[in-house]
Design a protein around this nucleic acid. Sequence first.
RNA 1: CGGGGCGUGGCUCAGCCUGGUAGAGCACCUGGUUCGGGACCAGGGGGUCGGAGGUUCAAAUCCUCUCGCCCCGACCA
Length: 481
Amino acid sequence: MTETKDTSHFVEDLTDQSDDFSRWYNEVVRKAQLADYAPVRGCMVIRPYGFALWENMQRLLDERIKATGHQNAYFPLLIPESLLALEAEHVEGFAPQVAWVTHGGDEKLEERYCVRPTSEAIICKMYSRWIESYRDLPVLINQWCNVMRWEKVTRLFLRTAEFLWQEGHTAHATAEEAQKETLLALEFYRDFVERDLAIPVFCGPKSEAEKFPGADMTYSLEALMRDGKALQAGTSHNLGQHFAKVFDITFQDEQGKRQFVYQTSWGMTTRMIGALTMVHGDDQGLKLPPRVAPIQAVVVPIWRKEAEKSAVLEFVGRVRAALDRVVRLYVDDRDQYTPGWKYNEHEMRGVPVRLEIGPRDVANGAVMSVRRDNRAKESIPLGALGQRVPALLAEVQQALFRSALEFRDQNTARASTLAEIEAHFAERRGYVAVPWKDEAALEAQIKERTGATLRCVPLATGNFTGLGADGERLALFARAY
RNA sequence: CGGGGCGUGGCUCAGCCUGGUAGAGCACCUGGUUCGGGACCAGGGGGUCGGAGGUUCAAAUCCUCUCGCCCCGACCA
């Protein structure tokens, strides 16, 4: 394995992260063709490359959702106002962000419909109809859909008026079961985000101030972006009986007694594409974790003369045969671009491994692989490709996670007093872990003075960064997206 | 929603202050030479200057309104 020479400035038209992170982000998303602005305020088009990425994420998360006993279903996009308005805290939380449908054709509707900002209301309505007996429980339903929130300020993937997500909605006979379900979802989210997206997360409950409108308790996964700001990577809510009481979701228990169900809801969104971008990306562009990358390896053929061209392309055919069913492979045999141009483009798009095949490689019966994450080069004999390329992808996946974890650890500090916390955020970003006893007033003060919010109180305290004693309760504060 | 900035071929921008025939680079098309880190030459196509109204003989340029995007804050996934 050899390192290449310094090649840090190939993509000269991409703003450096250190110059202007926000600008870098916008440029990467568009140059990598993940998404583009749509002619609709606050909305974006997810382009084929970005959507392929989402489909991979969807598949991997959907597998986990189904493996834990949930089924997919689909509920309407439109929700009658009267239904949404039933749960006061819920509607109050969403009211400013709701889009309304007021007309059907030319006729004004008697009751307006909201475009779902989330589906608790309509799903609860149906649950009240479907659930009669303890034998009907638990109900474990998930829905993949779009939702709309009339955001005032939008950013590609991070905050758009319309976004895609999955929302799980479950109903249970007991509070214990609902709590167990809440943590179950949190755990498969964590597994998905850390294993497939290579993003390390802190998981734990939110404070009262930060929780979902209408929930008893909200748990979140928090990821740290390269600019030191935190981003919520998923949420799981224990809704208790709030919605059940409002929507009259009851069942008869084994003793024949009427009870309200206990509910949960949990969601993860296309925002994670923004997280992937900001956690792994560098000044050359995206770095996609192999497990979700639409293209895991790209073949770039190289030749000078016609004779070389035919020999190279013949060899490329054999490489394709060896790898086609093993990895998601793209052979970039476009005539109009030079190899160097292709290197830059695929680096921008975050393809984890590049396979260069030129006359020298053909002579060697091997291909030259180059990793996106560290540019390490390695010549791989044709016969070894089927083994080595998947192994290489696994190494890249691991390296991305380790790099993100290292960055997070370096950007997580401990502080105890308001003064210390203020001093920290005056100078830098990242997480600050604070010994915590649910001091709501202190939380508000920290937010007021530093702009940092309580991200979560990690469940696995003590050993998570070596910052606290085992079992010590720490709250994580950070400026956040 | 507050404060600031920007809208001119697909992209990045000049032109606006001081009104007078819409420009450059990149991208795109054709032909040729090229191809191991964003190739080169020659020729070519493409813009009612975000939108609406106004001032004027004349508006990309001045005025009013409006829409969108970006940055910083408040809110959110």
